[in-house]
Design a protein around this nucleic acid. Sequence first.
DNA 1: TTAGGCGAAATTGCATACAATAATAGAATT
DNA 2: AATTCTATTATTGTATGCAATTTCGCCTAA
Lengths: 232, 232
Amino acid sequence: MAKKMSDAGGGRSQAVHRALKRAIIDQALPPGSKLPEDSIGERLGVSRTLVREALVRLSQEGLVELRPNKGAAVARPSLEEGRNLFLTRMALERLVVETLSGNLTREQIDTLSAHIAGEEAARTEHAASIRLAGEFHTLLAQMTNNASLIRYVNELVARSSLILALYGRPHSSECAVSEHRELLDKLIAGKTDEAAALMAHHLDSITARALLPTENSIQDVLATYAVAEGLA
Amino acid sequence: MAKKMSDAGGGRSQAVHRALKRAIIDQALPPGSKLPEDSIGERLGVSRTLVREALVRLSQEGLVELRPNKGAAVARPSLEEGRNLFLTRMALERLVVETLSGNLTREQIDTLSAHIAGEEAARTEHAASIRLAGEFHTLLAQMTNNASLIRYVNELVARSSLILALYGRPHSSECAVSEHRELLDKLIAGKTDEAAALMAHHLDSITARALLPTENSIQDVLATYAVAEGLA
DNA sequence: TTAGGCGAAATTGCATACAATAATAGAATT
DNA sequence: AATTCTATTATTGTATGCAATTTCGCCTAA
């Protein structure tokens, strides 16, 4: 009766897609990494065809850039793309919060609560900590039962990890957990506006910590040294 | 000097993608249409490989469904998917409005105004009228210069045409044009809240006209005839 | 030493071939 | 006549092959 033990879920192309996506989100493949079709295929035991398909999907999700004739690479969103992304995220997650506020089932509350506990537990492990923080948001989205909303929030959360990788500070995820707990409380209590405000603040604080204080253009970097050397 | 006259923009796969997308949005390929790789490739003069790539992209955009081993078909969103889709659209287009309100340049105003004029002119032509109405929204999104926002609004607008095709009434797009003009006025005047409210009303009226009063289950259809025949 | 160019190797773009799965039609049985 | 079974055909899943393009190392020339 057992059909195919290997490759959980859909076709094998999807498996490749998931593998790459995971690797990117975990920052095992940092932004900018080249993604040659045949080495990936060789490593994963599939042909270039399937890798290609996965890369197309990933590019549609904004996780990889597909430069014609020059191969695929993990995307390197600009600072402004990052800011815009969080703006869009805000708009969508506000809808999530509004949809969920006061409508959480006992079961959903338990799931979320357990997840937050997991976040607290993993506070020290940097990689897992980031992934779990993102998963909290996708979990919330999932509970809206709104397919397009789910898809977009998932995409944006995934891409956020790219932004964080590029422009985030080393240890920027500490206070996030407590904010998640607070948010859950507001949602349970059905205090929609407060929940939305909290979510806004939450995302804002992430962007503020991550995006603003970064000096990453050559100009800015040089500026620092220029000042140090008294060069105007 | 001339490189390649044919296929405007990116690779040929993109061309296939655009062709199919256009055909779907114009309802030349109505929801549910089978999309065999061979025949499409033959018709467009490319191999299955490229068609496949385009179909993957389209499936990511929610315009086609990719049933494993059973081929691709133009998506047939359910009524509930439709409602959720418009909810999501609302959240994003509110962001569009908030971003644009009071910040339109003279040039942008002219572009939008001209577009609305075009909509008025094409009022009689059903197909063009629907497409133009959608393009107004994507035009607005475009002006935000927010890449993710643009991408998602484009996707949702495209999918909306599927919803309209499935559940819309024959002539449901009449009042839309005047609402577009009103919206533009509010945006110019910088009356953000009023503009947002107008956008909300605008999308609401579309969904209300399109989604709610549809009799599409066999039960409902039969109910009509039952009443006509005095069959309770 | 640096810049430029040339050729080999690597990599992508695309088509095609073959295997696997599903759809279909026709025959045989009831 | 209806139905199930089977053989045939159509279509998808995946790998591979070839041409085109890029990348890289190496060599030459200033």
